[in-house]
Write a protein that binds this DNA or RNA. Structure first.
Lengths: 347, 347
DNA sequence: TGTTAGCACTCTGTTACCCCGAGTGCTAAA
DNA sequence: TTTAGCACTCGGGGTAACAGAGTGCTAACA
């Protein structure tokens, strides 16, 4: 469909525009080493490329700019997997250099490094808490009427909530209850906790504990873990440096969108497959992101869970580099998190 | 020093400028109801006020703008404690409407509400974790070579850290160690934990536990709680809406400064006294904040600790309203957190 | 002596205009 | 098929003109 020469020209146009953010003209193209024909020839080819919709003009007599279709084609067919610089590689490895045992910590550092390497905004979604299983439940009395309930999961996540209980509740009742909860609920995924508490435990508790309903209610509330997981960000402000957002209104629109986390969550939550997904401009179906591309890497974590890793940048993004970085980091993360999570499945 | 008329004019100028962000001219002033003299008279007075340094011109023939000295005078001598709107009050009370038992939760909500009410950026610093005392230490084994250590403090804060230990360490050894730690360390402020662990516990552990040094090292790391506390933000992006930051470079400078949390921490950490402190423009001694004022409210929490609550806005800030809001909220927070903290001191 | 009207002057922001440079499309020649 | 040449277009930068808002000063007034 496209001649070799057209491919070459398209490639050079996109590469150049990604670097400079300036429309690319025929004359400047013909001066490049890669391109041996005169500007007139280039002009003819550009005219064809424009007709096919791969590039467009910002006004009648301006240079050309890649269209979304152009970027799409570029990403689908013209991306040569670019070798990462040694520097980048060692930066990424530095995340895992220290022996870290907390998922949150690793994930947060990943987000930070990724945003620093790319100068874009990074978003990381760790494994789903909801699928964590209860490892141990504990209650630590704090004051006369309050205590801390602590749930430790098999992956080492600790969830704690303070709650109050009627003052006439006896300490031994609480201990008894905690024992019951542990006997019955260890191994339950957090997502089922609330239900099982009400359905299975209620009867059991009724039999053994006075005032069971208040306790039950307290616990039910504790065990209502948030519906979706925390997103970790890196370089939230980085988009400020992109010339496409020198207009403060566009910037505000985007920032507001980023802050609305549930919205963003839907955009990057793990998809069916594993691997890299690129969404360009309007493909994101969001006005605030019309000038943005979102590259998401979904990676497996032991026990069938998935994590994802995303970079939000202008459509004029360094696709090749970002994809290489994401591929590399998602591989490493996959291993590191699987280590944390997999090991603990044994027990 | 200032005549009544000059006071009046200064007041009106500042009020007007705070509202409109536009330089105020003599003609528009003389049209106001409060002001009964001609524009010429006003001009004479403004000339005097400028000579005294309370207002300044942006260029030779522009209207006047309050100077930092002007704001300072306004804040120090002309602020009439403004009654809050019922709406604001109920918004603030809504923070405490539900019975919440987590400091973090309350503090985060406070920051959010405060930023929404003011359209500025709010920063809240909760009570110092370092002064929390150990209530209970627990270890939950996770996999063969790793476990979670959990420290619960008297205020209900839960700190957890995953750590690894040599595989040949016996379960009973760990239990033994935990018992020892609890016997000796309950009641210790977190800030002393690390030291005491090394100085007092080392000898003790040596006597009772094989491989004590590895365990000790693991625990020491866990108990290294971060040096200063987490800051909670509300409306980080709100400054984008202020006309003084329509220049994206100024905005970037400010945002970078906000992200550098340790820097900010020094600006708002509790000062000697209790109450409201206003820092205007260059008084903050920070280039990024030249056009900003920072209002900090420091409030007491039971047990001699302090919290602080700050609003970062343009120098052209609604001082009166913000101060009223801060006064009110810091009172409520003081009570609420004291409740959480005070009660627990009993035990 | 304090207040005010009047006037000349100053500065900003907007609009209109011009011109240059960069780019295009088309045509005709190689 | 490629290229040189040329007419045309558009944006951006610079300048001039002008209206509007404001000031400072002077002189008159109460």
């Amino acid at each position: 469909m496209l001649t070799d020469r057209q491919l070459l020209i398209l490639q050079v146009i996109i590469d150049d525009f990604i670097r400079s953010a300036q429309p690319v003209g025929s004359r400047s193209l013909s001066k490049k080493n890669e391109i041996q024909f005169s500007s007139a020839t280039v002009r003819n080819e550009m005219s064809d490329l424009e007709e096919m919709g791969f590039i467009e003009k910002t006004h009648t007599s301006s240079g050309r700019v890649p269209s979304e279709k152009g970027y799409r084609f570029y990403v689908d067919h013209m991306l040569s997997p670019q070798a990462l610089q040694q520097q980048d590689i060692s930066q990424i490895h530095s995340i895992f250099a220290e022996r870290i045992y907390e998922m949150e910590n690793i994930v947060q550092r990943s987000a930070k490094i990724l945003s620093e390497l790319t100068n874009y905004t990074s978003i990381v979604l760790g494994p789903n808490l909801q699928e964590n299983r209860v490892k141990q439940i504990q209650v630590v009395p704090l004051t006369e009427g309050t205590a801390i309930a602590i749930i430790v999961t098999d992956t080492g996540h600790v969830e704690s909530r303070r709650f109050s209980f009627p003052k006439d509740l006896k300490a031994e009742d609480i201990e008894h209850m905690v024992r019951l909860l542990n006997d019955r609920l260890v191994g339950t995924p957090l997502m089922e906790l609330h239900d099982r508490l009400y359905k299975e435990m209620a009867i059991l508790l009724k039999r053994h504990i006075a005032n069971y309903d208040l306790m039950l209610q307290a616990f039910a509330e504790i065990m209502n873990v948030p519906v979706h997981d925390k997103l970790f960000f890196g370089g939230k402000m980085n988009m400020m440096n992109q010339p496409e957002f020198s207009d403060i209104d566009k910037l505000r629109l985007l920032m507001d969108m980023i802050e609305r986390e549930d919205n963003l969550y839907n955009l990057i939550r793990p998809t069916d497959g594993i691997g890299i997904q690129v969404k360009i401009g309007k493909e994101n179906e969001n006005v605030a992101m019309e000038n943005c591309s979102l590259i998401t890497a979904t990676f497996p974590i032991a026990s069938g869970q998935k994590g994802s890793l995303a970079i939000l940048g202008p459509t004029r993004m360094e696709y090749s580099r970002v994809i290489s970085l994401l591929n590399m980091l998602s591989g490493d993360l996959s291993k590191a998190l699987s280590d944390l999570y997999g090991k603990s499945q044994e027990s």
